[in-house]
């Protein structure tokens, strides 16, 4: 069963990865010659052309692409223009920090959404309900970088409770994770609320209510189980969006992850790094989809893969 799913993953992955690499190659190629900004102000055109030739950028695009692809097949993922070393380790070095941030942001989103959703459901259509959904939507409606800077000013500069930027300790993780996580709490809270309402509407719960002894553990468990499959789906979809949001958040907090690397690579048209980074993210997306399928199966054995 898992093998079938794995086979399907491969079947899906190869064409997607191929298309992604082609699209990125075309776009970055169209963006123009990266050497223009690599060379110092006092270098001449001849110097630049020497660099162009050294990097093989004087070749026609299809030749460049074919060479690039054949290098990949032989395990050479290209050299970064700005770092001057192999692109693959540069990208892989940054991966753990981004995974950590993404996971922490997911935890924050869940930590906000579950209580908020339950609270809203228990006080359906009341002011509390409106306030809770309003607040969670507000998190989604604010630009990420703005939230990040506000948090820095409040918790870093004014209250001096948390480190402003960088990485290294658990405290460093909090502000970026909150910045990234709040944007995703809204959708999740809505789901939890709906599941909770459905659970509360069921006969035996109503009976329990009538007896005056609602079993909160039972209610919570049911509601969360109802919410489980949509939550997993949403999480898997959000991972891509989280990685996108990481571009901005990591820049604000000087978080040494993939997002910051990609932003810089785009600024410098660092083809090899952009390619590998997009490649890695695409693989992650596909793996998440794969993982989602497996988790479905675990949650609900009726679903066949």
């Amino acid at each position: 069963m898992i093998l079938t799913a794995f086979g399907r993953l491969l079947l899906q992955a190869v064409p997607v990865l191929f298309t992604v690499s082609l699209i990125v190659f075309i776009l970055v190629f169209l963006a123009g010659d990266p050497t223009v900004m690599m060379i110092p102000d006092d270098a001449t055109e001849a110097d630049r052309l020497a660099l162009v030739a050294a990097w093989g950028l004087d070749q026609p695009p299809h030749v460049q692409y074919l060479r690039y692809m054949s290098n990949i097949l032989s395990g050479d993922f290209g050299t970064s223009y700005s770092y001057g070393t192999s692109a693959l380790p540069i990208v892989l070095d940054r991966l753990p920090a981004t995974l950590l941030l993404t996971a922490a942001a997911m935890v924050v989103a869940i930590a906000i959404a579950v209580p908020a959703g339950i609270l809203a459901a228990l006080n359906r259509n009341s002011a509390i309900d409106l306030a809770v959904s309003g607040a969670s939507v507000l998190g989604k409606a604010m630009p990420n970088f703005w939230v990040g800077i506000m948090l820095i000013l409040i918790f870093g500069v004014q209250l001096r409770l948390l480190p402003v930027s960088g990485s290294g300790t658990f405290a460093h993780l909090i502000l970026p994770a909150v910045t990234l996580g709040t944007a995703f709490a809204a959708d999740l809270a809505k789901l939890v609320r709906a599941s909770m309402l459905e659970t509360l509407g069921q006969d035996y719960i109503r009976t329990a209510y009538a007896k005056g002894i609602p079993d909160w553990i039972v209610i919570g468990k049911h509601a969360l189980r109802n919410a489980a499959i949509p939550t997993v789906t949403m999480t898997s979809l959000n991972v891509i969006a989280l990685l996108g949001g990481a571009l901005v958040t990591e820049t604000v907090f000087a978080w040494p992850g993939l997002g910051q690397l990609i932003v810089n690579a785009i600024y410098t048209k660092d083809m090899a790094v952009i390619q590998i980074a997009v490649f890695v993210i695409t693989v992650m997306t596909l793996l998440v989809n794969f993982g989602t399928d497996i988790v479905y199966r675990l949650i609900d054995p009726r679903i066949r893969l």
Binding site: I39, P40, L51, A53, G84
Partner: peptide, 8 residues
Amino acid sequence: QKLLSSAV
């Protein structure tokens, strides 16, 4: 020549 300082 691939070294960036090589140009200057």
